[in-house]
Design a protein around this nucleic acid. Structure first.
Length: 610
RNA sequence: CGGGGUGUAGCGCAGCCUGGUAGCGCAUCUGCUUUGGGAGCAGAGGGUCGGGAGUUCGAAUCUCUCCACCCCGACCA
């Protein structure tokens, strides 16, 4: 391809909207242009990368026995109503009506349609197993699209769905896909890690996420260097400390800590380890269950002390915010000063469910103290105290005194305050924690989720009555698996993982062009142009995907553009080199070019591209 | 959706506080020179100052309102 017949559009400065480095580089390299929030045009150079990723995914899916089809982006609401997702999905599901006022959605995934296909087409166990997949545009109306195509609303995903006669065969295919995904990400040239994922409400054993490792990743992955354990930090269990609670040594005392509201400050002032500090996080449940109405606090009501009755009634039951503040209960979650709350784990506490952080008024109403000095000691029965496992085994710890400007030290369970209402794992694991599988210590790495495999079981086949006849002629619901890969996200993730100060450094398998060639003074120097054209034609004849930059630009412009775009190999031909019988080759990551005899040029190129 | 911020030429920004002819750099176009790392000189084009309403003799500037975008928090490929 000649750049004069292609389309390159690079920018010196990235638009201010781009925060993430991959987003900036994609805009600067002219790969994408924004059309609306989270919606991007793939420009020619960017589309080439998308196609490379798709091709590798397609090849490996086919090799693994999956069969490609393509389902509509626009899908009728009926199937979604049948599966329950019309109600369950929420505002992320883009819905609209056609001219006949019939409801439709733009697919975020296609479980319903594929199950409908299976219901119609797969009638006998003899036809199983079958794995259908598509590479298709998806739309999810994200709350907050950001980071360019990394978290866009419209994106391309490979989604596959497998149908099985029984659980064992589903698990076989699941293992097959696990291996296939590993092959795919290896072929893409990315550093990645499969991690155990939440099976969520569907249950079952099998779900793994595949993460591309990058410091800017949104997910933190806890893994064990000594074993195979790897899980999203949100899900990794923090084991209970092995040793029992020591006995109390210190007497309870109150210490003045004016202006010191953060654990770090108090620990430093008192000269104690942060791990001896206990912080209390006040939460209010959003669930309106009727167990023990605790302290109510209608916003800012003066004197709404402990035991104040819930003020608002159910007359505004349709008003979500009113309902939410109807019967707030204060939960006090206790964590060590050096730990952080895991909100996913907290959400799973019985009775807490959906929650939000208590506001100042709610905290003052329940504890008669401003945030910053709150603690579990002396809290009324109406406050539910949950201790993290690590807090439950502390003795002689330090916590807020429920009195502004004071903390308590030498606090001991059972002596100074009742044992907690419950002890639970509510913190995020951190580096150095023991691995939940007992295999060693955890380390933490950041990653970008680019793949997810899942054993759906019978959720959709049951909802949509999708059955086949087994050998006994009995109708059986399919066991289903689903398997996703974020095609367009992979493009951004690959850049996050592979860039330098000059621009993108594509892994060879997904680079928009494998090699670039340019002649210095191509447009005005016949010798250079002839030599450049000759080698270019040779490369084309050899089937090499090459970009000839023949623009009438200064060398600096061409070279910086090629580096920004990230083409992994580069040939530069200049008159000076030609006089000595050489051309220059430089890999994108190399700091200096090497001179190659013209006669060896093509062989050399073949070798580095091999 | 809650909290914060920004909208001025294709891109990056100044001007706004203290109202009075809309500016700078890059990019674009023309000419000449230049040509191994984002060229120099000379000239040119390009703006509903996000939209609407208001205050005022006069609004990019002050007020109200709507919209878009960005950042921080709760979801996901």
């Amino acid at each position: 391809m000649r750049s004069s017949r292609f389309f390159l559009s690079t920018l010196k400065e990235a638009p201010a909207e781009a925060e993430l480095i991959s987003h900036q580089l994609m805009l600067r390299a002219g790969m994408i242009r924004r059309l609306a929030g989270g919606v991007y045009t793939w420009m020619p150079i960017g589309l080439r990368v998308v196609r490379k990723v798709e091709a590798i995914v397609r090849e490996e899916m086919n090799r693994a026995g999956a069969i490609e089809l393509s389902m509509p982006v626009v899908q009728p609401a009926e199937l979604w109503q049948a599966s329950g997702r019309w109600q369950a999905y929420g505002p992320e599901l883009l819905r609209f009506q056609d001219r006949h006022k019939r409801d439709f959605v733009i697919q975020p995934t296609s479980e319903e349609v594929i199950t409908d296909i299976a219901r119609a087409e797969l009638r006998s166990y003899r036809q199983l197993p079958v794995h259908f997949y598509q590479i298709q545009t998806k739309f999810r109306d994200e709350r907050r699209p950001r980071f360019g195509v990394m978290r866009g609303r419209e994106f391309v995903m490979k989604d596959g769905y497998s149908f099985h006669a029984d659980r064992a065969d589903l698990e076989r295919e699941y293992a097959n896909m696990y291996a296939t995904y590993c092959r795919i990400f290896t072929r893409l040239g990315l550093r990645y890690r499969p991690v155990a994922a939440d099976t969520g409400s569907i249950g079952g054993t099998g779900s793994h996420e595949f993460h591309v490792l990058a410091d800017s990743g949104e997910d933190a992955i806890a893994y064990c260097a000594a074993s195979e354990y790897a899980a999203n930090v949100e899900l990794a269990e923090a084991l209970a400390p092995p040793d029992p609670r020591p006995s109390a040594q210190e007497a309870l005392s109150e210490v003045a800590t004016p202006g010191r509201t953060r654990c770090e400050e108090v620990a430093a002032d008192l000269g104690i380890a942060l791990s001896r500090m206990v912080k209390a996080i006040a939460l209010v449940s959003d669930e309106s269950d009727d167990a023990v109405p605790l302290t109510a606090s209608t916003q800012g009501t003066a004197g709404a002390g402990e035991g104040a009755a819930a003020a608002s009634s159910d007359t505004h039951a349709n008003d979500a915010s009113a309902a939410r503040t109807a019967t707030p209960k204060l939960w006090l979650l206790l964590l060590r000063g050096d730990h952080t709350l895991n909100e996913i784990k907290a959400q799973k506490l019985a009775g807490l469910g959906a929650f939000h952080f208590a506001n100042d008024a709610q905290i003052e109403a329940a504890l008669a103290c401003r945030p910053g000095y709150i603690g579990p000691v002396g809290a009324s029965q109406s406050v539910r105290v949950i201790a993290d496992r690590s807090v439950a085994v502390l003795a002689d710890f330090v916590c807020g005194a429920n009195r502004e400007g004071f903390h308590l030290r030498g606090v001991n369970w059972g002596r100074d305050l009742p044992e907690p209402f419950a002890v639970a794992d509510i913190r995020n694991v951190q580096e150095g924690d023991p691995s939940p599988d007992g295999g060693g210590l955890l380390q933490i790495q950041r990653g970008i989720e680019v793949g997810h495999i899942f054993q759906l079981r019978r959720k959709y086949s049951a909802a949509l009555a999708a059955t086949f006849l087994d050998a006994q002629g009995k109708a059986i619901e399919f066991e289903m698996g689903c398997y996703g890969i974020g095609i367009t996200r992979i493009v951004a993730a690959a850049i996050e993982q592979n860039h330098d100060e000059r621009g993108i450094c594509w892994p060879d398998p997904i680079a928009p062009f494998r090699i670039a060639i340019t002649g210095l003074g191509y447009q005005r120097n016949d010798t250079v142009r002839a030599a450049t054209d000759t080698l270019y034609e040779q490369m084309l004849a050899a089937g090499i995907e090459v970009l000839l930059d023949d623009r009438n630009e200064r060398p600096g412009v061409i070279l910086t553009d090629l580096e920004l775009i990230g083409i992994p190999h580069r040939i530069v031909i200049g008159e000076r080199g030609l006089n000595g019988g050489t051309i220059e080759y430089q890999a994108r990551g190399m700091t200096a070019p090497s001179a190659i005899p013209i006669a060896d040029a093509l062989d050399h190129i073949r070798r580095v591209l091999a």
